[in-house]
């Protein structure tokens, strides 16, 4: 069985995290942003798995199950919000929904 060194495993998780982060920053479509967040969550979960296997502990996998549950709940809430948003604004562009910003900016 080929063993991959831990550094590479962690680097892979980090790359995954960065991919998610960049996606979050670059994308304007809110569904893609949600997907990016999922990727980031999973990269974090992967670090738990890696750590669990490294120290031969089951805790890492337990944490993974937790994160999976949380992300499932989060996605369901997120998707519901996106639906509502689409109903209201007829768009999925995150930048278009900025009504919470400081009014003074507009007055000036």
């Amino acid at each position: 069985m080929v063993t991959i060194s831990m550094e590479i495993q962690i680097l892979f998780a980090g790359a995954l995290f960065l991919t998610g982060l960049l996606g979050l920053l670059v994308r304007r479509n809110i569904i893609f942003m949600l997907l990016s967040i999922e990727i980031m969550l999973n990269s974090a979960a992967l670090v738990f798995i890696i750590a669990g296997s490294h120290w031969m502990q089951a805790d890492g996998q337990v944490m993974f199950i937790f994160i999976l549950t949380v992300s499932a709940a989060e996605v369901s809430v997120g998707l519901a919000l996106i639906l509502q948003m689409y109903h209201h604004y007829r768009t999925l562009d995150a930048d278009a929904i900025n009504r919470l910003h400081d009014k003074k900016e507009n007055e000036k």
Binding site: R28, A94, N98, H101, D102, E105
Partner: peptide
């Protein structure tokens, strides 16, 4: 500080990062 409060989600994430 009000300049940073522009309502753009991605801007907030950028600053956070």
């Amino acid at each position: 500080l009000t300049k940073t409060q522009n309502g753009k989600l991605r801007w907030y994430v950028t600053v956070l990062t």
